[in-house]
């Protein structure tokens, strides 16, 4: 009889692992198996995070830490130096606060729109409609595109001599320079980012919808419960955990928005679509006014806000889960 390779491998590694477990205990064993993942996480996340923090306490234009001078919390003080936080121009780093307020407004509208559109799409795709698989693929397709490609496609549609204006002219309408208008540009960044990512969230919600037991809907149908009540009393509560995941992910992604907007509007017109990540990129890497320490401080502040938002969101969703269980 030929021994399967896996069995053979198990026989080989089993004795030393048992020995190791006896020596370290069960917790030590768990730590041993977690080690590779933790090492990767440490190298690619924790160490850069720590380095970023160290950078934020330094100043100068040099990139190597050994060539930079320690300035403590000076970069943070500069970022937070503001006469009136609601008036970015009264702040020392006015562009940071402009980017922060733009990001806040963007996240509020984009995340709301994203959840609404993804939920509606998931509800539709969960029904027995003709060509359901095709539509699922269609809605997911933009997720597969590179953000730069997404930005370029929509730029070609929205620019002065773009597809949209061509269609408008053909319909006898006045063309509009969409990307030169503050309002339209802002709306475009919300619409384009929603279009690009909604497929992913739709998929999560669709999985949640399909996990809801069918007998609940059958019971509701037998009781002649109106569809809106079914949605409010069955679908929404049972979809709660998935909605919480979508909310947290969309929120994080919304705050981190960069690639497609950078290609589409470049942060303009003026600074109307300048979001935090572009500000950090500009200050850290691209700008003729480069200041890596300030960029690092801004990214730490942004990271802290994200952590707070995520924790608040998780705590809310846990509370709603517990309420649901009761």
């Amino acid at each position: 009889m030929v021994t399967a390779p896996l069995t053979l491998l198990a026989r080989i590694v089993d004795p030393p692992l048992r020995l190791w477990q006896r020596w370290t205990g069960l917790n030590g064993m768990a730590a041993f198996f977690l080690l590779p993942n933790m090492a990767i996480f440490g190298v690619f996340v924790l160490i850069p995070l720590a380095l970023n923090f160290v950078y934020s306490t330094t100043a100068g234009t040099n990139i190597l830490l050994r060539d930079r001078s320690y300035v403590g919390a000076e970069q943070y003080a500069r970022l937070l130096d503001c006469a009136n936080y609601l008036e970015p121009l009264t702040c020392r780093e006015d562009q940071f606060w402009t980017a922060a307020s733009n990001t806040l407004v963007f996240v509020i509208f984009q995340v709301s729109l994203m959840i609404a559109v993804s939920l509606i799409t998931a509800l539709i795709l969960n029904r027995e409609i003709r060509g359901r698989s095709f539509f699922r693929a269609v809605f997911f397709f933009p997720v597969l595109l590179s953000p730069v490609v997404v930005g370029l496609i929509w730029k070609w549609i929205l620019q002065r001599q773009g597809l949209l204006n061509l269609m408008m002219v053909n319909l006898g309408l006045e063309p509009e320079v969409w990307l030169n208008d503050r309002f339209y540009s802002f709306v475009a960044t919300i619409g384009v980012s929603t279009w690009a990512h909604m497929g992913f969230y739709t998929l999560i919600l669709l999985a949640g919808l399909q996990a809801i037991p069918k007998d609940l809907y059958e019971a509701a149908e037998m009781d002649a419960t109106p569809p809106t009540r079914v949605f409010r009393r069955i679908t929404l509560p049972l979809l709660g955990p998935n909605l919480a995941v979508v909310l947290v992910l969309a929120l994080i992604r919304g705050v981190q928005i960069f690639d497609e907007v950078f290609v589409l509007t470049g942060g303009g017109p003026g600074t109307s679509t300048l979001y935090l990540t572009q500000y950090i990129y500009e200050v850290g890497f691209a700008s003729l006014l480069r200041n890596p320490g300030l960029a690092a401080a801004a990214s730490i502040v942004m990271g802290a806000v994200l952590v707070v938002l995520t924790l608040a969101q998780l705590s809310l969703s846990r509370r709603s889960e517990r309420a649901g269980e009761r």
């Binding site: 562009q95 030169n180 003026g270 572009q278």
Partner: peptide
């Protein structure tokens, strides 16, 4: 399109 529709030093 050249000057207005971008932020920073792009």
């Amino acid at each position: 399109d050249v000057w207005v529709s971008a932020a920073g030093t792009t």
